[in-house]
Design a protein around this nucleic acid. Sequence first.
DNA 1: ATTCGATTCCCAACTAGTGGAAGTCTGGCA
DNA 2: TGCCAGACTTCCACTAGTTGGGAATCGAAT
Lengths: 256, 256
Amino acid sequence: MALQERVLSVLGAFNADRPSLSLSDIAAITGLPVSTTHRLVANLVSWGALERDERRRYVIGLRLWEIGVLSPRAYRYRSRILPFLEELFVATREHVVLTALHDGEGIMVEQLLGRRGARLAAGLGERLPLHASSPGHVFLAFGPPELWEVIEAEPLHAYTPRTITDRDELRRVVRDVRRTSISLSEGAIVTSTVSISAPVFAHRGEFYGAVSLVATIGTVDPNVLAPSVLRASRLISAALLTAGEEPPFRPLRRGV
Amino acid sequence: MALQERVLSVLGAFNADRPSLSLSDIAAITGLPVSTTHRLVANLVSWGALERDERRRYVIGLRLWEIGVLSPRAYRYRSRILPFLEELFVATREHVVLTALHDGEGIMVEQLLGRRGARLAAGLGERLPLHASSPGHVFLAFGPPELWEVIEAEPLHAYTPRTITDRDELRRVVRDVRRTSISLSEGAIVTSTVSISAPVFAHRGEFYGAVSLVATIGTVDPNVLAPSVLRASRLISAALLTAGEEPPFRPLRRGV
DNA sequence: ATTCGATTCCCAACTAGTGGAAGTCTGGCA
DNA sequence: TGCCAGACTTCCACTAGTTGGGAATCGAAT
């Protein structure tokens, strides 16, 4: 394995399930010798890609976050989309989530957290299973057809008894999502949670992702909320349609 | 320069002012030979740290964003802080911003964008000058004393005619901020913008950063808004005080 | 069609990374 | 308080991997 790959595999050792690691954890996960890991990690720390927390374990550094937020895949349309998510949030006060398509998966790129604190399946930056979430169904309905290959290839994991694990049923559900532009999923990953999603399209009608509202089952009437979600999704798509890449306003830039 | 540094310097070539770069841009910025840059960059692309946009320029990849959001410095307290920022947002409908301390500077880690769209000095992940912003003054008032070294060392850039460039005046203003726990700054970076900030403390009373409200001058009365900001800052500090690192809820985790 | 800058590919030279082993630190326990 | 085991850090001779000039190719602009 080449050095560059090694450096990257050290970063890749971190994920939402293990956000902090000891040196030997990293060595074990990457399969690198401890002394080599030590050297790599020391360099990453001195650059700011990694930091050490109060327990002296390694964590991802703010410097890497600073660079990560430059990712257009995550934030390109942020300033245009966020106001609509906020509008939906103000109207409902439940969790509002934006999920974007990223090589065959849905990634949560934006989250507003409702006061009532319904349990969320995943945090910012985490991926959602296509077959077991309402955004996932939106992806299957409106995203590229290749997404179905994932569905065909792997067994559909049952997170709860209510998770759809039958491919025919999934196809039926997705057909309905395509027809109504609304996806409703109850207890598919978290037993107590209902989520309502609708598709978002970027310029030229290209599929971008899904807006979702997440609440605790029984505390809301999904049929009442669905129109708000649908409206938000349409407003966002309309806002993205008039693309025109507004020139960024950068008052802090100095010189040159 | 060692390879690891080179890899990192390629990533470091990107910033908010230049989020997309051509190969030769990267080579020029890092000072690396073009062929070397090409190889480094190709590896970064294949791993997902970089991507190419529709113009075939290089941009930061979503994979890096995914890892970046694991940074505890940016998001450790997110789920506990965000509801209060939202509350402030709902009450005011102006931009709400959270700035965290990171080696001697303030970095914007959270932003809710108000409908009225006052001009913001910086976007997510960008740094704010200490002498020329209301969060900056909060940092100087409540953050570590070393911050003043920066102030002493460098000339205070005048972004607008209203930017404080006199160190004595700055000290006076900061003294007031320390006394009132409220920092008000008008047109210090962007002529048309007023911002109101208050300090946030994490566990053990350690300084964490600042909450701010940002609006267009003349459309709001800062004295009316200030109490809301102060209240938000106190509620957040209180919430962080009862730290206790809640065990994360991870329903998506499978196996093991 | 032509030009020129930007990108991609190649390979012999050689430097920078490697990793086993030995030494040091740390914190849990008696 | 002193001991021990596991985790971390340092060292250095060896060698695999990186290097980068140059030449070929691409492609946008004229």
